[in-house]
Amino acid sequence: MTANANGSYAYYPGCSLTKNAAAYDVSSRVIARALGFELNELTDWNCCGASEYFSLNQLPAYALVARNLALTASEGAKQVVAPCSLCYVNLYKTDKYMGDHADLNEKVNAALAAGKLAYRAGDVKVRHLLDVVVNDVGFDNVAAAVKKPLYNLRVAPYYGCLIVRPRTGFDDVEYPTTMDHLMEVLGATVVDFPLKAECCGGHMTQISDDVALELIRRLLHNATEYEADAIVTVCPMCQLNLDAYQDQVNRRFGTRFKMPILYFTQVMGLAFGMEPKAVAIGKEIVDARPALAKVTAEPPVQPKKKRRDKSALPMPSTEREG
């Protein structure tokens, strides 16, 4: 493991994981244990403000987030892990902006001082749980933990927005691939999913049904087109919107989507041989059991690679220069 010498991180679950996304919390903790790294829940953390606090008043919003960073630093932790993409981006952005903009840094610290706290930008490294699994634990260690490969389960890895944007540097902003590789390591079949980093609608479910339901429909449509058995997500907001609103989408558009939405940590737990209950399978509204029943003991037969048509023009290599 390349992370902290002791492989331990401050853990910021965020409000969603306490109730609505408890399945994500439970499964995150068990896979951490299975992979041998520690998630130490940050004492007395507060809400990150979601996107709502930033809409109302930006400075208190940054101060709200900074309290969590200050608490992390005061506990002596160097890295904080958030499984929720919205929490992750708020923590990441606050740390980055405090470093980039002196004026903001000064005001946020003045506010923190009112609570006898202080924070120096850069002191805490903000990480998403997927980043930790992929880069600190690594694919090899994950592969070593796989006991029941998810052969024949077709998954659409869904990253959503905030794990890659604004530029957090951990994966491509437009076409991330880390979770794709992770799912392959777990034995699952990864389907092409061009909308993998598009928006789930976010808080638009509360503001405009027209906008939100259409955004959700596009994602479900795209995953269905590519014959995915399940969508795998890294964010409780994405999970909630795609799962809980699926019924409304079907009613509005006359569609018949029945796409289970699972957290990547739940899928990992299953591949590690854990009981579905141990990773809180069953908390989802669209039942995941029919999809999971497709898993076979034998790997799928790889279709023979089609020989390139002689008349076809060569494809550009996917290596990027510079």
Binding site: E174, P316, T318, R320
Partner: peptide, 13 residues
């Protein structure tokens, strides 16, 4: 210019 550097235009993919 290597067009792969602008992933939103899909060159190479």
């Amino acid at each position: 210019f290597d067009a792969r550097r602008i992933p939103e235009y899909g060159y190479g993919r």
